[in-house]
Design a protein around this nucleic acid. Structure first.
Lengths: 183, 183
DNA sequence: TGACAACATGAGTGGCGACTCATAATTTGA
DNA sequence: TCAAATTATGAGTCGCCACTCATGTTGTCA
């Protein structure tokens, strides 16, 4: 069941490709070409396709990483015990998404779904923890559901990127969104 | 300066093409091919390009129509004098966008910008009227700006489509968004 | 009605992007 | 050090799409 270990150069290239993919897709969106990723990684196209048979596979690998990083951040915030952590996280993700289009892709693709989480530290689960804490502390309305929070976050990130909100407008808009969650 | 009148068949085809474009782009998004539009209009590709030299031109024509229709609807609501008209309009547009991807394109392209409105009945202007009425009636917070309303609307439409919210989630999410505007 | 201008047609062009594969270069284990 | 296995290379294939143009068709007006 386990794959034979990769050759040294193969392992190095795999890492470079992943890093390049993050950079390229963050900057130009997931519609950027695989050639662009290869160029950025200093590698030939064929090499990219050897490691990731499909562009979708490459994206999936990146999404997994991003998901984990966001989940970790959410867990850290939850551990700190601040009852406004949910709102903080929300704002942070939007700010992050502005410079990193992959975030939007993750959200659109349902990367926060709580349903099929085979990873131990699911992002959706972490968000839920944040939500429960906020509810208990009275930071958000008692009837706010997790899927609504995710939906609002998705909407905010999409809007911010698609419409290219200026920083000022972005901050005011996110504030309005959070107002809708608060008591 | 004025163009010579179109021949009868040309006028007929132009109408068909516009109708087909709305149908196709509403269903499949603006990335649908021009061939698809031609097929739907019962016309050859060349004919489409004769009337609209560029796909962008075709889109622009459609956007203009959509903009006018939305503006008219907003004005109608404003004329009726209901102080919650802004919220009604907001919800209506989101519902409309779910079945008509062109709406999202209009929003993403800045079709609601109040700035450069050479058309008499600007959509942005109509929305602003709605907003002023709502503010006066106390239906929304006094400090809500027009650009925030547009931003939230854009976000809602993008989110609803990109993430494919189910009707139930969609309604709850829009309600949350409107909560952020209300007192 | 005839003849010309306006219009329609659809196969063709060029460009792009995902993906392949024969060949060349590296790594590795003995 | 040296073969055998693994990996890298990049020109090439395939499909899609915006857009063109030589040719055929149709509306219009005298």
């Amino acid at each position: 069941m386990s794959e034979p270990p990769l050759r040294a150069d193969a392992r190095r290239n795999r890492t470079r490709i992943l890093a390049a993919a993050v950079e390229v897709f963050d900057r130009h969106g997931t519609s950027a070409s695989t050639e662009e990723v290869a160029r950025c990684a200093g590698v030939a196209v064929g090499t990219v396709f050897r490691h990731f048979p499909t562009k979708a596979d490459l994206l999936a690998a990146i999404m997994k990483d991003l998901q984990d990083r966001l989940a970790t951040r959410a867990e850290t915030l939850a551990a700190e015990g601040d009852p406004t952590a949910l709102l903080t996280f929300f704002a942070e993700v939007v700010e992050h998404a502005v410079g990193a289009r992959t975030v939007v892709h993750l959200l659109a693709v349902g990367g926060m779904d709580v349903g099929v989480d085979r990873q131990v530290a699911g992002l959706g689960k972490a968000l839920d923890t944040l939500l429960v804490r906020a509810r208990e502390a009275g930071t958000v309305r008692a009837d706010v559901k997790l899927d609504e929070v995710i939906a609002l976050l998705t909407a905010a990130c999409h809007g911010a990127l698609a419409a290219g909100w200026a920083p000022d407008l972005r901050h005011r808009t996110v504030a309005r969104l959070l107002d809708g969650l608060r008591l």
